[in-house]
Design a protein around this nucleic acid. Sequence first.
RNA 1: GCCGGGGUGGCGAAAUUGGCAGACGCGCCAGACUUAGGAUCUGGUGGCCGCGAGGCUGUAGGGGUUCGAGUCCCCUCCCCGGCACCA
Length: 829
Amino acid sequence: MEPVDSRRLQDAYDASAIEAKWRRQWEIDNLYRVDDDDPRPKWYSLTMYPYPSGILHVGHWWAYTVPDAYARLQRMRGYNVLFPMGFDAFGLPAENAAIRNNTHPAAWTVDNIDAMREQYRSMGPMIDWTRQVVTCTPEYYRWNQWLFLRMLERGLAYRAPGSVWWCPNDQTVLANEQVIDGNICERCGHEVYKRDLEQWYFRITDYADELLDGLETVDWPERVKTMQRNWIGKSRGARLSFRLDSGEGLEVFTTRPDTVWGATFMVVAPEHPLVATITTDEKRAEVDAYVDQARRQSEIERMSGDSDKPKSGVWTGAYATNPVNDARIPVWIADYVLMGYGTGAIMAVPAHDERDFLFARSHGLPIVPVIQPDGVEHLDGETMTEAYVGPGRMINSGRFDGTPVPESIETIVEWLASQNRGEREINFRLRDWLISRQRYWGTPIPVVYCDACGMVPVPDDQLPVVLPLDAEFTPTGQSPLVSHEAFLHTTCPACGGPARRETDTMDTFVDSSWYWFRYTSPQFEEGMFDTEAARRWVPVDLYTGGIEHAILHLLYARFFTRVIRDIGLIDHDEPFKKLRNQGMILSVEGTKMSKSRGTQVSPDAIVEHWGADTLRLHLMYLGPWELGGPWNDNGPVGMNRFIRRAFQVVTETVDRPVTGDDTTAEARALRRLTHLTIQKVTEDIEGFAFNTMVAALIEFTNALMAQRETAVIHTPAWREAVETLVLLMAPSTPFVAEELWQRLGRPYSVHHRQWPTFDPALLTVEEVELVVQVNGKVRERLTVPVGLDEAAALAQVRALPKVQEQLGDREPVKVIYVPGRLINIVVKG
RNA sequence: GCCGGGGUGGCGAAAUUGGCAGACGCGCCAGACUUAGGAUCUGGUGGCCGCGAGGCUGUAGGGGUUCGAGUCCCCUCCCCGGCACCA
């Protein structure tokens, strides 16, 4: 590093010299080291850790520097702030890049992390690098394995066969959450399909209710909470059993038990196990053909498109009996009923369910209304054009005729239960989390298979099961570890006989489901984390990241937090008290930044040209952080001008003696502006309104610039204004603020100073500008003393020539007076 | 289709929640300075009319409530996000 030329710094704002100087100084002083034992109240700010893709783009700056300003505010406000950084270092891109570049995922990842850490340094972030967490290290992933074993003990981890999503491009299975738009791989965008495979799952469904209820307790964006609620998909209703002629019961789930009397047929999914046994001989050929055809179609084809299209299906020839009215109704199969939800079978009530209605019309099945709307219209199954799903009174329902619904649904369920004809049931859309992957670059699942003992967990003292670095990892559809003889063959921990290791690895979302705990004690060797240290910091007070993780990561993290709680390591339920999502930063044209189309913006080039402070400000000023928006190439120009003006107005103050007094109107006005700005900047950072926060700083600076040749510059008020400006700039422009603070002769470091507070008494004014309206239109403005009463105000206003002109000889019919704001004279004609 | 969130100058956006629409920045125009640069400074900048003071008009479109509406209510159009046969 070159020595800093201090003479150059005297003259004008030189971003690169200032930033180099303070970057070095802060590192020497460990300015951002976080001390667990600091007695001040804690604040845990967290930004979703990045994947080590190798290069830092503006998106990373956008995601990190803006919350960095927030964390810095908290620190200056007296909190002991943890705002750590790490890398989400396992995953497919490393394997793919390694194959492409003929290197190893580990080497590729380590190189990338080193490069990115260098780039992070240029931002001037308050990262304590001694707490860095890298998930692909055995020191980290051994705790994935440890937790897996605890979950296995508790029945929260299990292996089961099932119909699972398979990505032919990535050559691995995927969790439901990782399939987007019905059949697209969330990672690579390739089309996926279902295969019947035995896989490992985490029993997240055990926590479905808790995960739903917990959403009420967190300060998260409403849309994220809604997405999670939809994903969990809780439905209240009843389970009913319809007796088939063959004697077996056909179980269905319904959310409308009040409509059972209107069930005129039943439908089972083509995959339903009873299809084979209930189909009659005459219908067998037709049913088999239909089942075959449904199997061949992907789920997306079955479910996509217009739900009002005619629905296909065939009759099985079988009948079942309605448990409430003994009606004998036919059993059909149709692909609109899904095996994966409820029981895979439904009672069809065409009069009150849109899908059943369409099906009945397509296949000539009877429609019997059992709910009459309260209004004048009278439903008739023959003439109905659509299903009626609204409220009303029950009819054709025996003893329940006249009962109002939906308010009486509970009563009906109770009656069904008391008659042994059904029971209350709650259903969830949420499925268990499929965590095994047939890929190399992930955490090995710590179990072995022994011919004598079966599946045996690896004992804790044999952890970690280390991922061998010398494996052949080109994807084949099988886990690459299968062909690694030394890894595969082991001895059974139970009997000592020969055994085979599990060769699948864990989904990388396992890594990110608890990493924030690890930041609190990253070198801890006796457990996932030091519970003493963790309890000091968690839960996270403020979590920031992209909306794309609204379901996946955030749901898994909430699940893991509860598992870790139930194991006894911590005692809270929700990991992240407050969540804020940044929008996406787009290219100049408003499209997603793309390397191939050359629309990416290089933060390094901007830092070199304008400095990190300018880039930070530009990102904050771009627009509302939670919205995102297109990049503007000229934006940094404006922010740089502002910094330069601030630099000038502060530096020219440095040696000026304070000789004036603060009693002049100008000095009092200046103090008022200073304190208004403190209030605005503080509230805006807190409210994530970084754009208006910067605007307030600019306005303040412009006001100072406008007065720099007046007498007020010699007053204590001026000195206060200038020092306040530097303090208020510290969170957003940490480098130049430190430089200016030093030049003002104030003690190092500005980042350890107390955040200024505003004095409400100073915000008051003696005179205000009153807006004068006639019939609601602004005609004049008038400066009046605060507290002027209505009569006096009206008298003054009526004397104004403009007002007289407007009024003519008309008398006011009404006067609206809002003291300190406006007066509105209403006249007729 | 259903549920959210939006629509404000040439552009990004503000607007203390019913009280001066367009703060602040970019861009643009004019000027100053400068042996020229993607630099800096000053002033102007929603639209229309007017030499001017000033007037009219204006927050997707239409209607309403109100002394007063970007903000509240009703209808219509458009954009973005989520869910989408979940029984």
